[in-house]
Simulated scan of single mutants.
Amino acid sequence: MEEGTTVVGRRAVLEALDAGAAVHKIWVQEGTSPAFLEVLKAKARARGVPVSVVPRARLQPFGAFRHQGVVAFLSPMPYADAEALLAGAEGKAAALWVVLDGLEDPHNVGAIIRTAAAAGAEAVILPKHQSAGLTPAAVKASAGAVFSLPVARTTNLVRFAERMKAAGFWLIGASPDGGTDWRAADYRGKVALVIGGEGRGLRPLLRRRLDVVVRLPMKGGVASLNASVAAALLLYEAYRQREGAPWPP
């Protein structure tokens, strides 16, 4: 997580406390629901985290994040270790990871992390540069999933993808000009779903390392889907196949 970050929003703050994140203080806006405040204080007390009720004006700097009257301040929390995650996947026959190729919108990053956690993914990999990280906006969009799903960064995503392939991962990317219908790909086994950045899509160097590039059919003159929507479709197709569930008749 970015140094000196904050977590905003009721659900995200409660999730941070439940997950044991390094929260060192919480501000709650005057007039907050007594029922919510009671729950929050109980969880914070169990973790030894002070809760202060503050005037509305104190939370104005966080207004862009729709804080819902609650802001938690966290000590620096490191990203997961990408090398350790890869080493841990070496002997596995099945795994589901998500690789984000330079997404710049933290809301998309957070939304994908949330969906990845819900669909049973085990890790999310980001490039260290030219990518949104775990900013307050991303943490809020993840609805607390960043505290339960490992998110790691790597300095060279193309090289890391090559090492993932050597470790047995099957890399599946998505692009409007992909050669395989998204429902025809095999998402079982050891799979990494690769989602390209907003606007530019998959970078050519990374795309050449992929085993399959799928397409999501579109009508109505739409050129592409939002990155988080495309990721959600692939993640839940992976979930369906891995659970052995049939398509509805």
Results as ranks from 00 to 15, higher is better:
Ala123Lys: 02
Val109Asn: 09
Lys41Cys: 05
Gly20Ala: 04
Arg153Lys: 15
Ala161Arg: 03
Ala119Thr: 11
Val124Pro: 15
Ala167Cys: 02
Ala35Cys: 03
Ser33Phe: 04
Ala95Arg: 14
Trp182Phe: 10
Ile26Cys: 04
Pro217His: 10
Val158Gln: 08
Leu59Asp: 11
Ala87Ile: 07
Gln241Lys: 05
Val53Gln: 10
Ala44Gly: 05
Glu83Lys: 11
Ala184Gly: 01
Asn226Ile: 03
Arg215Phe: 14
Glu2Met: 06
Arg159Gln: 10
Ala174Val: 14
Val158Asp: 07
Gly201Phe: 00
Arg207Asn: 05
Arg66Ala: 11
Met1Trp: 02
Leu74Thr: 07
Thr5Trp: 03
Arg207Ala: 13
Ala167Asp: 00
Thr180Ala: 11
Leu14Arg: 09
Pro150Asp: 12
Ala42Leu: 10
Phe36Arg: 00
Pro176Ser: 07
Asp101Glu: 00
Arg208Asn: 12
Pro204Arg: 15
Pro61Ala: 02
Val146Trp: 03
Gly20Cys: 00
Tyr187His: 06
Gly178Cys: 04
Val139Cys: 02
Gly179Gln: 08
Gln29Leu: 00
Leu149Phe: 13
Arg153Ser: 15
Ala21Tyr: 12
Gly199Val: 04
Glu243Gln: 14
Ala232Glu: 09
Arg66Gly: 07
Leu96Gln: 11
Glu38Gln: 13
Glu38Met: 05
Ala152Trp: 06
Lys25Met: 03
Asp81Ser: 14
